[in-house]
């Protein structure tokens, strides 16, 4: 038996919105630790790892560890039946091939029961090594989102360069080129507006903008984004989900041959 209850139902809607443009189908792993997912995009260039810890739910019961294969697009369709202020309960029984979503309005005057078919998904978990990154940039997630959107109107790739001067995002396209530099700014009174750069070594890496722009769909989950970079390694773009966990995106770099 698996049952979880999330009073802030809009959070699940936003999590699925942050995944659905990247991943078609995925196995959700359920255990006493929480509700998690690891999945790659169809071309194996990007990977998303989600963790929603059990303590973050109002109710969380998972009698044994198991995986639920779900189509993310279908899950997004089902979640469209929930209002933003609804309480969401997800239930599944051992050995069944369906999952039930229950949406309750805050005043309990409307209850929706939605059943969705589960899928058999053959997917391998990848071992993600714990790495010490050469440069870690923390910045407002809205700022990062607007930089990615702006640059993607000019070019297809973004080069991220971290130095003592700050972090520079640059692109080049047929119509011209552009670069945006953000300097460290920790003096602000609002921590969510700070830009903090921890650098052991200067790093320069190039990535496909279409993937990074997809990651910024998670902007509403967190006021800050953390971008961790090391030479010739996938970048990690992390959005913390308050009191619950995180959504982390990994993107393989473009490499000079």
């Amino acid at each position: 038996m698996f049952e979880l209850r999330l009073v802030q139902g809009s959070l699940l809607k936003r999590v699925i919105d942050a995944i659905k443009d990247l991943v078609n189908d995925a196995n959700f792993d359920c255990s006493s630790t929480g509700f998690s997912l690891q999945a790659m995009d169809s071309s194996h260039v990007a990977l998303v790892a989600l963790l929603l810890r059990s303590e973050g739910f109002e109710h969380f019961r998972c009698d044994r560890t198991f995986s639920m294969g779900m189509s993310i697009a279908n899950m997004a369709k089902m979640l469209k039946c929930a209002s933003n202020d609804d309480i969401i309960t997800i239930k599944a029984d051992d050995g069944t091939d369906t999952v039930t979503f229950m949406f309750e309005s805050p005043s309990q005057d409307k209850i929706s029961d939605i059943e969705m078919k589960l899928m058999d998904i053959d997917s391998d978990h990848l071992g993600i090594p714990d790495a010490e990154y050469e440069a870690i940039v923390r910045m407002p997630s809205t700022e990062f989102g607007s930089i990615c959107t702006s640059l993607s109107t000019i070019g297809d790739t973004v080069t991220i360069a971290v130095s003592k001067q700050g972090v520079t995002f640059s692109t080049k396209g047929d119509i011209g080129s552009g670069n945006i530099t953000c300097r460290q700014n920790s003096s602000t009174e609002k921590p969510e507006e700070a830009t903090i750069i921890e650098m052991k070594e200067p790093v320069v890496l190039t990535f496909a903008l279409k993937y990074i722009t997809t990651f910024t769909k998670a902007t509403s989950l967190s006021s800050q984004v953390t971008i961790s970079l090391s030479s010739d390694m996938p970048v990690v773009v992390e959005y913390k989900i308050a009191e619950m966990g995180h959504i982390r995106y990994y993107l393989a770099p473009k490499i000079e041959e």
Partner: peptide, 14 residues
Amino acid sequence: GIKQSTITKFFSKG
């Protein structure tokens, strides 16, 4: 030229 690498080049299955 510059080429897109894949995640599986960096992270192993298991």
